[in-house]
Amino acid sequence: MALYSEKVMDHFLHPRNVGVIEDANAIGEVGNAKCGDIMKMYLKIKDDIVEDVKFETFGCGSAIASSSMATEMIKGKPLSEVRTLTNKAVTEALDGLPAHKIHCSVLAEEAIKSALEDYENRKNAGNQ
């Protein structure tokens, strides 16, 4: 038996949406290097829709795969939908993760939440 599902390996070996968005208007970063996982999400939001999303991840195979899958799941989606994305949905989309790797999918959910928070903060700052 392999360590990871085929889906996880596919997203790990061929990660989608890797990179940086220079003019992102929502950036979220979670995790820390001490624990061995850092995820950074760059979102370009327009008219309450995630027009584009890219990620950078320092972490294990499942962290990279979770980031990749999460970006696919939110790209082109309205914020109302993006806000409801859970780590469980990411894990399921990956056909499961080993028990001790579930936290990687949690990081993906948190990275998106953190980016949305950044978006709200920027908006509020702009309105002031």
């Binding site: 070996l13 996982d37 972490g59 294990c60 195979g61």
Partner: peptide, 11 residues
């Protein structure tokens, strides 16, 4: 520096 070992091993 700057990378994580498990992803290195898998690749």
């Amino acid at each position: 520096e700057g990378i994580e070992g498990e992803s290195l091993l898998l690749l």
